[in-house]
Every structure is written in structure tokens, then in C-alpha cells.
Design a protein around this nucleic acid. Structure first.
Lengths: 216, 216
DNA sequence: TTGACAACATACCCGGTAGTATGTTCCTCT
DNA sequence: AGAGGAACATACTACCGGGTATGTTGTCAA
């Protein structure tokens, strides 16, 4: 789960905090999570967290940013690849869903971050940070949007509103975030099966012909 | 939005509170909503709320219950109807989605209520109430599950896990809860169009043939 | 008329939590 | 070696919000 334990050791302490924070925010939600909760989860005290982050919101935002970074890292190589649109769509959706499952705590924070922005009950400075993060998420979604619209032009996908369809696709692909609890001993094959079902559902929803989906 | 303004006037005060509470809980989330917020939204004070409800959790649970009741009321007549399974599936999914849009604040509370149960950070008595409400939601979902499995047996729908597919279907149908903000002047035709796209996406996801979906 | 109760409003208490101010320990660089 | 700072822990404050205790007003029945 650790983001990248091999970077410079100076940041290693921060990433431990990020992992613990992501876990707590997922378990209890942003508002209901106290800094002491995160500290306890770390076997530490508030001092450690406030040494690295100025506020609870700052900590949360960093989790958000890290989560989005993971997503970009996962699909960037695929988006650039020069392959058929169907292949690209299948690869991107499947990869995205696997990323959701594997980095679940971070992605739940991304989700709540979006809600936090929409609700708008934040300080002006927090709002600025949130808007920037939201742009990151929009950029990410737009990678998929481009692929979707190209697929539509090529007669492979069929839908009316791109925006609504993008929402629907992501809701399907992201859905394991909300109903999948990794029990101890969850093997790779199970995860792949879940991601497969989500991907198939989404691609069908986009209007792809059945023979283009079968082997996802 | 008012649940039913024509019942006995004794309960009328409570339903005003329910509407205001549902709105606040949707706007800021359960944890971040204070009783004073709800009271302010009512143009009243805490006294009024605590006169009708013993605690913040009790108020929230009543919103949850009311939301589920609305859903049952909406699809119960359809589920009993003696019509073809395809017709029933189309009618139920479309009706459900319309209910989500029309009673959005209540349904967001239902959603958060489920999360509250899964997170499990509640008192024992609260947990009992939540479990009972969750059973209500499970019963509701099972109505759809039965229809789904019958459709699968008849070779109309195609999927592996019923549970996962049920999740995926509801995620699609419920998705307007999270990205649709009713602006002033939102007409019935727009709402119907949104519900239509969600329903088409879900029915496709279930593996229905295109000709069985076209006119939803 | 009055008294009893419903339906609130007002005033207050108190626990929890974000944030701060100040120690303490170790590590590093000169 | 020792000075300075990074990386924490400890102790404290201020405030917010759930819940309660008590006051106030209208209504209705006897």
C-alpha cells in the first residue's frame, strides 16, 4: 500500500503518515476523523503530524494528490500507446478499476475530496487547493473522455451526453471502492475477477458490441 | 419535496424538520452537520428539533427510513404487476432512477447511512437501529435481485455474480445523486432524459439486447 | 376561567478536537 | 566536540457542538 518506499528517506516519514491518514479517512470519513486518530493509527502523537502538515485539511489534500498521482501513473503509458481505440478503451478501463481496488483508501479520499469541493464548506485558501486538485481529476477524466468520444466517432460506442456517460462509466469502474472490503488472503485472481466484471458492465453500458468485450 | 403534507397536522411539524435535515445532511454530510445548522435552515432553534427527536442520530435515522419508504412506495406496485420480465425490469429501473432524482436529499442520507453502518463507529443502540434500516434497504435490493435472476434464467440478462451485478446496476441508477444538481427551472423533460440515459446504461450493462432497450 | 400539556425558545454545561507552544532527543555538519 | 536543527512528544488553550434544564406561549378541554 505504501506509495513508494524507495524514494529519498526524508520523505519516507511523510508517506507513512499518508498511508495512515488515507486509512483513517476511509474508515470514518474526513469530518469524523481526528488528527489523534491518525496519530494513534501510526503509534505516534499529533506532534509528528503537525510537524509535516500545517492542518488537517492540508494532510487530506496531500492524500488526495497522491491518489490522483497514482491514477495518472497507472494509465499514462496506456493513453500514449499507439493501439486501436477498442484495445485502448479496454486497457484503460480495466487498469483504472484495478487501481481503484489496489489503492482503495487513497481513492476514497479522492472521492470525498470531490464532495468536499461541491459542498463548498471550506475556507478560501482550502478552496483554492481543492480547486487545483479538482482540476487534476478533471484532466484525468478528460483522458477517458477523449477516448470515449473517439470511440463514438468510430461507431464503436453509442451514447448521448459525453458528460453523463463519463459519470456513468466511472461510477461503474469505481464502484468497488464502496462495496469491496479486502479480507485477509484476498488473492490476485479474485481482484482481477471483480475488476473484470466492473469493466464488462461499463463497456456494455457504453454500447460496445459483445464480441469486443468477451475477453476483458 | 415535502414527503406528504396532507397527513395529520400533528406530524406536519416533523416532516418540515425531516426535509430540512435531509437537505443539510446532503449539503455537508452527517458528521459535519450540526443540529444548529438544521434549526437555522428551519428558521428555528435546537429546542424544536430536540422536542421531536432524542438525538442527532435519531433524526438522521428517520430521514433514512423516510427515504426508503419512498422507494418502496414507488416500485411496490410495479413489482407485483403481472407483466413480462423485460417490461418489469425496464419499469423498475427507470422508476427507481426517477425516485433518486426527485427525492435526492433523502437518498443521499440513505447512502450515507449505509456507509455509517459499514464504518461501524456508532453506539450499540444506534447500531441496532442502523441494522434494522439496512435490512429495509436489503429487502428493497432483493426485489431487484429476484427480477435480475429471473431475467438471467430466461436468457435475457447475462452476468456472473448477482451481488456484484446488483451493486453495479444500483451504482449506475443512483449516480445522479452525486453529479446532478437541480438548478432552478429544471423541467420534467430534462429529468426524464437523465433518468433515461442512466437506465439505458444499466440495462446494457446487464447484457440486455439493444432492441429491448431502445424505447426506455 | 384555568390548568395542563404540546410546542417550541433560551441559557447553560461539558466533552472532544484543531491548533499551538514548548520541551526533548538524536543526528549531522563543521 | 558542540552547535544547530530535524523529528518528534508533551502540555495546554480555545472553541464548537451535542445534549439538557428550564422558561415561555398558545391551545383545548373540563
Amino acid at each position: 500500500m505504501s506509495v513508494s518506499a524507495t524514494v529519498n528517506p526524508a520523505r519516507h516519514g511523510q508517506e507513512e503518515i499518508l498511508d495512515a491518514a488515507a486509512q483513517c479517512f476511509m474508515d470514518r470519513g474526513y469530518a469524523a476523523t481526528s488528527i489523534d486518530d491518525v496519530a494513534r493509527n501510526l503509534g505516534a502523537t499529533k506532534g509528528r503530524i503537525y510537524h509535516h502538515y500545517r492542518s488537517k485539511a492540508d494532510l487530506f489534500f496531500d492524500v488526495y494528490r497522491q491518489g490522483m498521482q497514482m491514477n495518472f501513473d497507472a494509465i499514462a503509458p496506456l493513453a500514449e500507446q499507439k493501439i486501436g481505440i477498442v484495445e485502448k478503451l479496454r486497457a484503460m478501463t480495466k487498469t483504472h478499476t484495478l487501481a481503484m481496488i489496489r489503492t482503495q483508501p487513497y481513492q476514497r479520499c479522492v472521492w470525498e475530496g470531490v464532495e468536499l469541493l461541491l459542498r463548498g464548506s471550506t475556507t478560501p485558501e482550502q478552496r483554492i487547493a481543492l480547486v487545483e486538485l479538482h482540476k487534476m481529476r478533471t484532466d484525468y477524466a478528460n483522458i477517458f473522455r477523449d477516448v470515449l468520444e473517439q470511440a463514438k466517432r468510430e461507431g464503436i460506442a453509442h451514447f448521448h451526453s459525453s458528460s453523463i456517460t463519463l459519470h456513468l462509466m466511472f461510477m461503474s469502474l469505481n464502484s468497488p471502492l464502496f462495496w469491496f472490503q479486502p479480507s485477509h488472503g484476498v488473492d490476485e485472481k479474485t481482484i482481477d475477477g471483480i475488476a473484470s466484471q466492473c469493466t464488462v458492465f461499463a463497456l456494455r453500458g457504453l454500447g460496445l458490441k459483445e464480441e469486443l468485450i468477451a475477453d476483458v
